[in-house]
């Protein structure tokens, strides 16, 4: 088996492929510096290891995501930040060769427990993907799909209300309110991503995971999404993976720096960007590599 043995359900995230672990054997017992744990943790990961077949993609990561906070995860390609994010709502389950060990809890409950239902988990922990991926259905259907399969609306009026509210929260309502029956795939890239955010918040999740949500967008669309993330943190707990350090600095309260599968440093965003304590973090945020 190798990393190319994937099912129709998406390949192994590309960052896992370039991982060469033999170089850093010296760091085996690395201890994260900074404050990985917080008092008001919504989700907490302890000693998490993720493997793709025999590739060790995440090593002993312990990290909390504070409630109603934005946690940014940064790091060079292949550092495992997307893999870590996807293990938070068990999206990694659909990759047959992926294995997760350690403990990840949502509100103190182990999400990898045998009695944990992934459908329920993903309703509570929503996700926005790197590439906007609206369903090839109408804008209305895109937003209504989640609430419908979970039976959240009991009438058409209630559903309309959920759709409108979700689109408003994703600051897309004014642009699409007259074209709700048009296909979601016909919107612009930025609008599509906001539609995906609306779709995610329509099921009222507690946590929203964002995997480089702006990487396919232009600066204006990116700015709108960033504004939106700032508003959304009032209601939701957000974890965002990003390649843009400016974005991490703008939208997050805490920042975690990953390097080759290890969590190097976590801390207050301001502190990470002004006074990084680890050499690797400093090198990365000052643009010396990555």
């Amino acid at each position: 088996m190798n990393a190319n043995d994937s099912t129709a359900y998406g390949a192994v995230p590309e960052e896992a492929v370039g991982l060469d672990l033999n170089d850093h054997t010296a760091m085996d017992d690395y201890q994260t510096i900074g404050e990985p744990l917080v008092d008001n943790a919504k989700m907490s990961a302890r000693d998490v290891n993720v493997f793709y077949a025999d590739k060790h993609a995440i090593m002993d990561v312990s990290l909390d995501i504070g409630e109603n906070q934005v946690l940014a995860m940064i790091g060079p390609s292949g550092c495992g930040k997307s893999t870590f994010l996807r293990s938070l709502n068990r999206m990694n389950d659909i990759i047959p060769i992926c294995r997760v060990s350690g403990n990840i809890a949502l509100d103190g409950e182990d999400i990898y427990a045998s009695n944990q239902d992934t459908v329920l988990l993903r309703a509570r922990v929503g996700m926005v993907f790197q590439k906007p991926n609206p369903f090839p259905k109408s804008i209305y259907e895109n937003v209504a799909y989640g609430p419908r399969i979970h039976g959240l609306a009991h009438s058409k009026a209630e559903m309309d209300e959920i759709v409108e509210q979700s689109l408003r929260r994703a600051s897309l309502w004014d642009e699409v309110k007259d074209v709700l029956d048009k296909p979601g795939t016909g919107l612009s890239g930025g609008q599509q991503q906001r539609l995906c955010i609306a779709r995610a918040i329509a099921v009222s999740p507690e946590v929203i995971l964002m995997d480089e949500p702006c990487s396919a967008l232009d600066p204006i669309a990116t700015a709108r999404i960033e504004e939106l993330i700032d508003e959304l943190k009032e209601r939701f707990t957000i974890a965002i993976v990003t390649h843009s350090m400016q974005q991490a600095a703008r939208v997050s309260q805490r920042t975690a720096y990953f390097h080759l599968g290890k969590l190097i440093e976590v801390g207050d965003t301001k502190q990470i960007f002004t006074m990084p304590r680890h050499e690797l973090t400093e090198n990365y945020i000052t643009g010396r590599f990555g």
């Binding site: 129709a8 999206m91 993903r122 993907f129 991926n133 989640g146």
Partner: peptide
């Protein structure tokens, strides 16, 4: 079925659709 973009499956699973719902609501159409 193989040619259906994985991102559609991920999107459906991401909002909490079960495997069967993903297949019948999104992949098959």
């Amino acid at each position: 079925i193989q040619a259906v973009s994985p991102s559609i499956r991920e999107a459906a699973l991401g909002v909490g659709a079960s495997k069967l719902q993903t297949v019948f609501h999104h992949v098959l159409p």
